[in-house]
């Protein structure tokens, strides 16, 4: 076996278990670039892009999105997260959205992965499976560094799950082009009114997706005063304070796509706008 086309998840988990060289390929939008440029040459590949089990979205109370769900699917079939829809629309191009999967984003674990701040802010759980069994990992524990995560070599990501968080959520991403950009900085904000919880997560602003705990607490305080369920705008001062707290949670660097100073600045702008935007949603 050099390239194996998996029929179902069990077939795939067995295939990666028996061949230590085996790597998984779903949409190919990350791995094929590495292969085309000669940076990676996996000894064996298991293609999981046609595993139907991985392609479902269910919304019975808890949302479960199969790892093989593409961004196009996320745009067409509402997974109950406006932020995830917005993030999906910002992914690459139609061609990339047709092939790229949410599981691929989770597996690659780039700090710039567009879906990842949303999963972090939703406090999603990543479900992985191997011949040894199934394991559930909170997103907060998933990423261990840039393009590093807690997946064992023989594990397959099967789904992401989260509690439906209501309509107050958004995603924003900075790039110097109107489409097809890798995030210079990104932000997801989720206000779960029924659980009185605020989730803020930052992309491309540190080695992993970062959470802004102090900003979350601050926003929760603002919403305690405004009323969680109401559609009322916080004051500009409150939004600005929230922005500053979000920016202070970042650990940005200068790189080819942007400066650390700009990343910090733009995070504060995005965060202030995001809070103003979601507060009036209902």
């Amino acid at each position: 076996m050099a390239v194996h086309v998996a029929r179902d998840v069990d077939d795939a988990t067995r295939a990666v278990a028996v061949d230590e060289r085996a790597e998984l390929i779903a949409g190919g939008t990350d791995l094929m670039v590495e292969i085309n440029f000669g940076r990676r040459r996996p000894g064996a590949l298991v293609a999981i892009d046609r595993v139907q089990e991985l392609r479902g979205i269910s919304r019975s109370g808890r949302v479960r999105v199969g790892a093989g769900v593409t961004y196009t699917q996320l745009l067409a079939d509402d997974a109950g997260s406006a932020a995830l829809r917005e993030a999906s629309r910002s992914v690459g191009s139609p061609q990339i959205r047709n092939a790229g999967t949410i599981g691929g984003n989770i597996a690659t674990s780039s700090p710039a992965g567009d879906a990842l701040p949303v999963l972090a802010a939703l406090e999603a759980t990543i479900v992985v499976r191997s011949v040894r069994g199934e394991r559930r990992v909170p997103f907060a524990e998933w990423m261990t560094g840039p393009k590093r995560n807690g997946r064992a070599r023989d594990e397959i990501i099967v789904a992401a799950e989260w509690e439906s968080a209501g309509p107050k959520q958004t995603f924003m991403k900075v790039g110097t082009r109107n489409a097809m950009v890798i995030a210079v900085a990104s932000l997801a904000l989720v206000v779960d009114a029924s659980r009185r919880r605020v989730g803020v997560a930052l992309g491309s602003c540190g080695p992993t997706i970062l959470r802004a705990d102090r900003a979350q607490s601050f926003a929760a305080g603002v919403l305690d005063e405004l009323g969680w369920e109401r559609q009322a705008a916080p004051t500009e001062t409150a939004c600005a304070e929230f922005g500053a707290l979000v920016a202070s949670a970042a650990r940005p660097i200068d790189d080819v796509r942007g400066t650390a100073a700009y990343r910090s600045h733009v995070l504060s702008v995005m965060a202030a706008r995001a809070l103003a935007r979601v507060a009036v949603l209902g």
């Binding site: 390239v3 190919g28 939008t29 590949l45 293609a47």
Partner: peptide, 10 residues
Amino acid sequence: VCSCLVLTAG
């Protein structure tokens, strides 16, 4: 899709 990102064998 972009055919450059499709693994033929898959």
